[in-house]
C-alpha cells in the first residue's frame, strides 16, 4: 500500500473539490482551444506548405546582404537611442517611484502606475500611434521604444533603490550627511549595478523590438523583412531572418558578458 502525499494530506472533501476544479479547468481550456482554432489536423495539413515556404527560401540570396547594411545600422541606432532616452525619462522618476525615497505614498503609487501604463502597452502599439503622430520613419520607432522602455527601466531602477541595504544609509545619516549626500554615497553605489543590469537587458529587448518596428513603418530591418515577404522574394527573407538572428545572438552574448563583469561582488 502506498500513500500519495503532495504537500499536506488531503481530506475526502479536498479530493472532491480538487477533482471538480480539475474538470472545470480542463473544460475551459478545451473550449478556448476551439475558439482559437487550435487544431492538430490543420497543423499536419499545413506542414507541406511550410516545408515549401522554407524550401523557397533556399538558398538564401546572399547578394541581398549589402542592402541590409543600412537597415542593420538603423536597427542598432534605434535600440541604442530608445534605451538612452528611456534612461533619461526613468532616472529622475525612479526616485519618486521607490518606496524608501518617495516623498509621499501618493507620489509613489502615482509614479508606479505611470510606469505600469507605459510598460503595459506593447512597443508596436506605441509605434502605430507615433507613426500616426510624427509620420513614417525611425523617429516614431525611437519614441515607441522610449516610452515603453522608460516604464520598464523606471520600475527596475526603483526596485534596485528599494533593495538597497538600509544599514549603510543609517551609517551615513549618523555622520550628519545631508539627504542628497546620503543618496549619492549610500544609495546610488548599491543601486548602480542593478541599474546597469536593467539597462543592458533593456538594450537587448530594444534590439529585438527594433527588428520588427519596420513592419509598421517605424524604421529598422523589419521593413526589409516585411517587403521581401510581400514581394515573394523568399530568398531575401531568409537573409533577413538570419541577419536578425545573428544580431540578437551577438547582443545577448555581449550583454551577458558585460553583466557578469559588472555584477561581480
Amino acid at each position: 500500500m502506498r500513500t500519495f502525499i503532495l504537500g499536506r494530506a488531503w481530506t475526502a472533501r479536498q479530493w472532491v473539490m480538487s477533482a471538480v476544479t480539475g474538470v472545470l479547468v480542463a473544460a475551459a481550456l478545451a473550449w478556448s482551444a476551439g475558439s482559437i482554432d487550435l487544431s492538430l489536423t490543420e497543423l499536419v495539413r499545413g506542414t507541406p506548405y511550410m516545408v515549401d515556404l522554407v524550401s523557397r527560401m533556399m538558398p538564401p540570396n546572399w547578394d541581398f546582404l549589402p542592402r541590409l547594411a543600412r537597415p542593420v545600422f538603423e536597427t542598432v541606432q534605434l535600440a541604442v537611442w530608445g534605451t538612452l532616452l528611456a534612461i533619461a525619462l526613468a532616472l529622475p522618476l525612479c526616485f519618486l517611484g521607490a518606496r524608501n525615497l518617495s516623498p509621499s505614498p501618493l507620489v509613489f503609487h502615482a509614479t508606479r502606475q505611470l510606469f505600469n501604463a507605459a510598460r503595459g502597452i506593447n512597443e508596436i502599439i506605441f509605434a502605430l500611434i507615433f507613426v500616426a503622430a510624427v509620420g513614417l520613419g525611425p523617429f516614431a520607432g525611437v519614441l515607441a521604444l522610449t516610452i515603453h522602455g522608460a516604464g520598464m527601466l523606471g520600475k527596475f531602477f526603483a526596485e534596485a533603490i528599494e533593495e538597497a541595504d538600509p544599514r549603510p544609509v543609517e551609517g551615513l545619516r549618523a555622520t550628519g550627511a545631508s539627504p542628497l549626500q546620503v543618496i549619492v554615497f549610500a544609495v546610488l553605489p548599491q543601486a548602480l549595478p542593478g541599474w546597469i543590469a536593467a539597462t543592458l537587458y533593456r538594450l537587448e529587448v530594444n534590439l529585438r523590438a527594433a527588428t520588427i518596428l519596420g513592419m509598421v513603418g517605424a524604421g529598422g530591418i523589419g521593413f526589409e523583412l516585411y517587403s521581401s515577404l510581400k514581394l515573394f522574394q523568399y530568398e531575401d527573407t531568409a537573409v533577413c531572418v538570419l541577419v536578425i538572428l545573428a544580431m540578437v545572438m551577438t547582443a545577448d552574448y555581449l550583454s551577458s558578458k558585460l553583466r557578469a563583469k559588472i555584477l561581480a561582488p
Binding site: 549603510p168 551609517g171 549618523a174 555622520t175 553605489p189 548599491q190
Partner: peptide, 12 residues
C-alpha cells in the same frame, strides 16, 4: 561619530 554592530559601511 557612530560605530555599528554591522559596521554599516557602503559595500561597493
Amino acid at each position: 561619530g557612530m560605530i555599528f554592530q554591522d559596521h554599516n559601511l557602503v559595500p561597493r
